[in-house]
Design a binder for these strands. Structure first.
Lengths: 151, 151
DNA sequence: CTCGTTGTAACCAGTTTAGTTATAACCAAA
DNA sequence: TTTGGTTATAACTAAACTGGTTACAACGAG
């Protein structure tokens, strides 16, 4: 099966970085994520459209539009994992309406699908970029990292 | 973004149908789902491998290996949406270990990803095929369906 | 003006999805 | 035992998505 794309984890990485560094450029972020700068710019474009970051064109550099405490992982998820109808689960189309099950399964199943999705999103909404940044620092300290000044 | 494949909803459809009809053939199920019989057989093969259904080769027909009350949507999801490591979220690979964020984000973020996934799966685990079948009947009655005898 | 940066468009290879066709194996019943 | 309907599976297709690349125009501070 296809997983949720790595755009989400990259977007979280980007926002964490912006929250910890002053006005990083796309190239610098790309170096930390270890991917192509265009990938970063595309994802930042989505984050910008969602109102999460500001970007200074020309001279470069990105900053958060809200405080790290105001941005949740759900905001990030919704910004980059766009899907029609915001529905995570796909439904097979056109089940046979002449069959009792085919005619009625969609209504019956969709309810369960939506609550499963809602449970996941609620969990994402409970984590802010601020909390994640703190966790990153804690992970770094636990593993004996001292060089916070580097890229 | 890519949704969770419709295999899941088809698999649930199949199991609901089997729980309500005696030994339906793949072709009959395909008619209800409104797709190609080979699609049905492939999904049934996954359900069989997961120990959810028995299939009578040659003469045809499928039956449940457990009672409808013992099969949850999570069982179906796991049977059909196979993923390496059972992780729904993808992580971008090889973030820069020389960067403070790059070195530590994976540990920090994975925890939140896993609890989001766990919340969704717990919700799926709370619905059984039995409950869903009842809901299908309820939906059918609510919309004035009388012809339960048809395919 | 210039240089580094952002914003896009166009393109590419690999994977997944959903579906099709074809063929072999199976088994009960005639 | 042959026949017919069924299951099992391989091989193939078109479309979509992912992650990535190259190229180029627009921007703006120094």
């Amino acid at each position: 099966m296809k997983k949720i794309s790595s755009r989400f984890s990259i977007a979280v990485h980007i926002l964490s970085l912006i929250s910890m560094l002053p006005m990083p450029t796309g190239d610098l972020i790309a170096a930390s994520v270890n991917t192509n700068p265009v990938i970063i710019r595309k994802i930042i474009a989505q984050l910008k459209k969602a109102g999460l970051v500001n970007v200074r064109a020309g001279t470069g550099g990105a900053s958060l539009s809200k405080t790290p405490a105001e941005i949740t992982l759900l905001d990030v998820y919704r910004a980059v994992e766009v899907v029609d109808g915001n529905e995570l689960f796909n439904f097979h189309e056109h089940p046979n309406p002449a069959c009792f099950v085919g005619a009625n399964i969609e209504n019956a199943l969709r309810e369960s699908m939506l609550s499963a999705q809602a449970a996941m999103e609620q969990e994402l909404a409970s984590v802010t970029i601020e909390r994640l940044a703190n966790k990153i620092v804690a992970c770094g300290q636990r593993s004996g990292w001292a060089d916070q000044g580097s890229v």
